[in-house]
Nucleic acid binder design. Structure first.
Length: 308
DNA sequence: TTCCGCACCTGCCGGC
DNA sequence: TGCCGGCAGGTGCGGA
């Protein structure tokens, strides 16, 4: 499932291949995948064709590609924004390649962009089996703190639909003290707080469980009973687990998550708790438990992560 | 204002 | 063999 390391892997891959390329054509095969596009699929194509990608940026799990061009008060900066949702992929192919060229199209390709120049064509496919992801063009607005909007951009701009998303722990402008304070002021469980993208972004179900296992904190521990040092430790464990995952290209359980070249990450081999129900805790040997939580699953060690 | 539950969506898998 | 329900889970919205 695409969480921060997976999205950053995709962002990095896109930055290597699509910068300064011009959009020659846009095909939308599934309208639902552009449901947030004002004006629908036709508006998406109309806005993108002929435009050039000036950067590839990310905040949390939101990706955006600012469109090059002169901006003004009447014509603010805009970008192509993508969210991968549960199963989204952005795959690059050369036209004519047997496994994904212009003629061959997989069953889950929802949107296809043809990128120039004419003598070096590139196909960018938005593939999304479960269709929780989406693409749309958006207006860029100034960041609240005046710092760059996210990774991959020096501009203090962020997509309007992602302006409420907090910075992630790997962001140079991430304010750990402020987040610790905000978390402790909430009256909720620590895992809910970790998954709240308006508090800290980029953390999904997998890395939340892994961070809490490392920090030896129960997923339901009340945030307003935690000491600052405990919250700080959870955040640092989240940072560490995501940093380690980023090095190996993210977590992958199956073909649902791949980078822009279609390669899977290897971090799933390093998971200590997530998806290991019944297996011995690597620390104490107690069987890992799985419980239903927030319409999903939580994995934890009942001995190392006691609810006090 | 804050918190929580649920719908959205598709494909896989196990049980019957 | 085919049908059905459960499960996977990020985000946004409505209700409490």
């Amino acid at each position: 499932m695409p969480e921060l390391p997976e999205v950053e892997t995709v962002r990095d891959g896109l930055a290597r291949h699509v910068l300064d390329r011009t959009v020659l054509d846009v095909e939308v095969f599934r309208d639902y995948s552009v449901r947030r596009q004002e004006g629908g699929p036709e508006a998406l194509a109309a806005e993108l064709v002929g435009r050039r990608f000036a950067a590839v940026a990310r905040r949390g799990k939101f990706l955006w590609l600012p469109l090059a061009g002169v901006t003004s008060a009447d014509s603010p900066a805009r970008a192509l924004m993508a969210h991968l949702g549960m199963s989204g992929q952005l795959l690059l192919n050369r036209p004519g390649r047997a496994d994904g060229g212009l003629r061959a199209r997989g069953p889950h390709v929802r949107v296809r962009l043809l990128l120039g120049p004419e003598d070096d064509l590139l196909v960018l496919d938005f593939v999304d089996q479960r269709t929780f992801g989406h693409l749309s063009t958006v207006v860029l607005v100034p960041t609240a703190d005046g710092h760059p909007g996210g990774w991959g951009t020096g501009d203090a701009l962020v997509p309007a639909p992602a302006a409420h998303i907090a910075r992630d722990p790997l962001d140079p402008a991430f304010d750990e003290d402020a987040v610790v304070d905000q978390v402790r002021r909430r009256h909720t469980g620590i895992k809910r707080a970790l998954l709240d993208q308006t508090l800290v972004s980029g953390v999904g179900n997998i890395y939340a469980d892994e961070a809490l296992w490392r920090a030896r904190v129960h997923y339901a521990r009340a945030t307003d009973t935690m000491r600052p040092a405990q919250v700080r430790e959870v955040l640092r464990c989240a940072t560490a687990v995501m940093s380690e995952s980023l090095v190996v290209g993210g977590t992958s359980f199956d073909a649902l998550y791949v980078d822009v070249n279609g390669s899977s990450g290897y971090f799933s081999r390093s998971l200590q708790a997530y998806g290991r129900a019944g297996e011995p805790c690597p620390r104490c040997g107690t069987p890992i438990r799985r419980v239903a939580f927030m319409n999903r699953s939580s994995y934890f060690c009942p001995k190392c992560q006691r609810l006090r």
